[in-house]
Computed example of a mutant assay.
Amino acid sequence: MADYGLLNNIQGSMSGTMPSLLRQITTPCKIGDALEIDVLKEYDVTFESEVTENPVETGFIVADHVIRKPLSLKLVAIFTPTPVTFLNHFGGAPNVNRLSDVANALMQIYQKADPVTVTLYDAIYDNMVMLTAPLKRNVQNGICYEMELNFKHVVVVEQRTEEVPEEYASNDAQGKAGQTEKDGGTAEQKDIGTGMTTVVNTATVDISSLQTGYNAGGDISTGKEITATVAAVSIISALQY
Rank of each mutant, 00 (worst) to 15 (best):
M1S: 02
A2Y: 15
L6Y: 00
N8V: 15
G16A: 13
M18T: 14
M18N: 12
L22P: 07
T26H: 10
T26F: 09
P28Q: 02
C29R: 03
C29L: 07
K30L: 11
G32F: 01
D33N: 06
A34D: 15
K41H: 09
Y43N: 13
D44K: 15
V56C: 02
H65V: 15
V66D: 09
L71A: 08
K74W: 12
F79L: 07
T85Q: 01
N88A: 03
N88V: 04
F90Q: 03
F90H: 03
G91C: 08
G92F: 07
N95A: 07
A105H: 02
Q111F: 02
K112V: 00
Y121S: 11
A123C: 11
D126Y: 15
T132E: 13
L135D: 00
K136Q: 07
K136D: 05
E146Y: 03
N150W: 09
F151K: 11
K152G: 08
V156C: 14
V157W: 07
Q159G: 10
E163A: 03
Y168Q: 09
S170T: 15
N171E: 08
D172I: 14
K182P: 05
D191L: 07
G193Q: 11
G193W: 12
T198R: 06
V200S: 02
V200T: 07
D206G: 07
I207V: 12
T212D: 02
I220E: 10
S221M: 12
S234H: 04
I235G: 00
S237Y: 05
Q240K: 00
